[in-house]
Design a protein around this nucleic acid. Sequence first.
RNA 1: GGAGAGGUGCCGGAGUGGCUGAACGGGGCGGCCUGCUAAGCCGUUGUAGGGAGUAAUCCCUACCCAGGGUUCGAAUCCCUGCCUCUCCGCCA
Length: 421
Amino acid sequence: MLDLKFIRENPELVRKAIQDKGDKADLDGLLALDVKRREIIGEVESARARQNRVTLQIAEMKKAKQDAAAVIAEMRAVSDRIKELDEQLRDAEEKIYQIQIRIPNIPHASVPVGDPSHNQVVRQWGEMPKQDFKPLPHYEIAEKLGLVDFNRTSRMSGASFVGYRGLGARLERALINFMLDLHSEKQGYTEIAPPFVTKRESMFGTGQLPKLEEDMYHIPLDDLFLVPTAEVPVTNLHREEVLDGEELPIFYTAYTPCFRREAGAYGKDTRGLVRIHQFDKVEMVKFVKPETSYEEHEKLTANAEEVLQLLGLPYRVVSLATGDLSFSAAKCYDLEVYAMGMEKWLEVSSCSNFEDFQARRANIRFRPFKGAKPEYVHTLNGSGLALPRTVIAILENYQTDEGTVTVPAVLRKYMGVDVIR
RNA sequence: GGAGAGGUGCCGGAGUGGCUGAACGGGGCGGCCUGCUAAGCCGUUGUAGGGAGUAAUCCCUACCCAGGGUUCGAAUCCCUGCCUCUCCGCCA
């Protein structure tokens, strides 16, 4: 969330951000309430100052065995007035807060302004795959090779739930291990194995709540949420902490399944593995000093790109326009892999810089040096990568005219086979 | 799941209704002193909000896990929540 003082001092900047992101937070309501709030504070604090003075007198009088009844009666009225004002203040602050937490982060100056049609392809990597036979879509390949149990798992858990079998299951596990190994051994990330459910506060910290509650799986009995991404548990690892400046930057990587209700997305991309309620993902999360966050953002994106490069999958990097940017992000690159069978670019990674937006919500700070005031860190995260669409690209781009799938070289040691047949 | 204990400043640890933003010890920082062995002495050491001033700064308010309540007045009493620890039970 944004700092209240910042909003007060830069209302036009905030207004533009709300507009550019296509949001409709009530900025004017907040500004009016803020004026009211400060009026109340002025009054209640002077009343309290008086109360503090008189209360000492009462103690003196009692010690001197004087009758304090009259003064106490007077103070009772003051006390009542303070309570009244306190209530008004609480009410105003709660209303302000409810608006404040719904104001989106401000896009960085380098982000293209406009709706998603203004997304910018900033670079492209790899050869577009070509075959002299008619490539099949992944769901047909998976069906023929017995890699995915579309029908049984739907019967068991509902539509858009998918389970893997045989070499399909092995491919899933191979990809997770390959990605975690790359991030932790070569790219300097510390591996985390977090819980797959979190409390409400953690979902709030990273910005999923309150806006996206209907997209989350919720366990009412314990008021817990299934994680929609490892970003939630891993970023919240340092919630309510003041980190030592020397610890920064902190790089984490984690595998989790991701649970998303995808409310409102029914009928879109329903075929195969493109959009499912539970999918595997390896995530990277960074906690950095503010002045380095944009440099770290580029590096994070490069780290995700390396996964695709090593897998030999062609992709492009898209800088999201303001209208496509998530609520919490200041800037975001999407990585889109090309899948030959579907003839589509599929989003497999979002690499975002949240600046201090999440850090303020989750209260994650650092002390730049000994004795200095704590400042908010900048948080970033990026998928490295989401598995199902990576699997789509592998199955489709590596298919042969014999109906088999060649295993990408880097995965062979994890798969134990060179060809899926 | 049952029973109990507890959450105080950077850390340890006092404090059970007014004089406590908080004793004492440690650490950090600043200074002094010193040839006697990683010593001694003195001082200092939180955050947030509101207001005044060009500013250094000053005034007020709040904060002893969080949120409510009782009271003229709460770190101290009551309620709720969160977290930690111990014992018992259950369990992969």
